[in-house]
Computed example of a mutant assay.
Amino acid sequence: MTVTYDYAGKSVLVTGGTRGIGAGIAAAFQAAGADVTICARTAPERAVSERAVSERAVSERAGSERGRPGWRFVQADVRDPEQVDRLIGGFDRLDVVVNNAGGSPHAPVDGTSPRLHARVIELNLTAPLLVSQRAYPLLAASGGAVVMIGSASGARPSPGTSAYGAAKAGLHHLARCLAAEWAPLVRVNTVVVGLAATQEASDHYGGRTDLDDQAIPAGRMATPADVAAVCLWLAAPGYVTGAEVRVDGGGEVPAWRHLV
């Protein structure tokens, strides 16, 4: 069975959409016919100048106007309210916001900078709040949707990335609050992602490549395409709001299973 979605004529914003899960989400919406805007602090191709990126965005947008889905890149740090205003101010219409920008270095609480933890919380919790808040009038006008990209780290202990886990737990709760506050005009849901196979996976998991069968009941890590498929469903018109959909392959096998 094949499930397809038609996002033709829809405008979609994916924060942190230049790599990893965000890039996979952006590609899926574009393949479904949407006009996709991605944003990040750096351009998708570091060697490409800002002018070249702008020229390519214009070219892609022109292709969209001729009936093909297009994409554009906007450089923005979504932790900065002024940059968020500039980002959202560039839209005449907005149907879907995917708050994907996030992440954290390995940062144990003891001995690390308070500013580092504050920045991690700003990126993973405050930034999605700012983007959603600024986008709300456009989303309300279109009957749109917000999809938060959460993490299993926000649903269980996250040693070594405590600020990140706490921020993601806050993000999950923020989504439920916004879903109740903005219903029925705007739906807000969360995709709770478990272990994921991205460019950063080997670093994040200590260089281990043998975790799939040992740690995940489904036998493999999630891919960007797995996450994108859920985003396409949650962003489509429907009844579901305030939900958390786990994309974690059945959870994580507890360590004691390997000790008995």
Rank of each mutant, 00 (worst) to 15 (best):
L138C: 12
Y164W: 09
L171P: 04
G160N: 02
S132F: 07
G150Y: 01
L129D: 09
H106E: 11
E181G: 08
G170P: 02
A196D: 06
G150Q: 10
N189K: 04
P137T: 05
Y164D: 11
S202N: 09
Y164G: 08
A197D: 14
G150M: 05
T198S: 01
S132K: 06
H173R: 05
T126K: 13
L138I: 02
C177F: 10
L174W: 05
H117T: 01
A167D: 05
V120K: 08
A196V: 08
A179G: 15
E181F: 09
R134S: 04
G102F: 11
L129E: 09
R134A: 10
R86N: 14
A101R: 05
V193Q: 03
D95C: 07
R156Y: 03
A183F: 06
V147A: 04
G165K: 00
L195R: 12
T190H: 12
T190Q: 13
L185S: 15
L185G: 15
L87V: 05
Y136H: 15
H117D: 10
V192F: 07
A155Q: 14
M148I: 06
R93V: 13
S104Q: 08
L94T: 08
A175H: 08
A179K: 11
L125A: 09
D92G: 15
R187T: 09
T126L: 14
A101F: 14
L116P: 00
R156A: 15
F91V: 12
D110V: 15
P128S: 12
Y205E: 10
S113T: 12
V120R: 06
G90S: 09
L185W: 14
A107D: 06
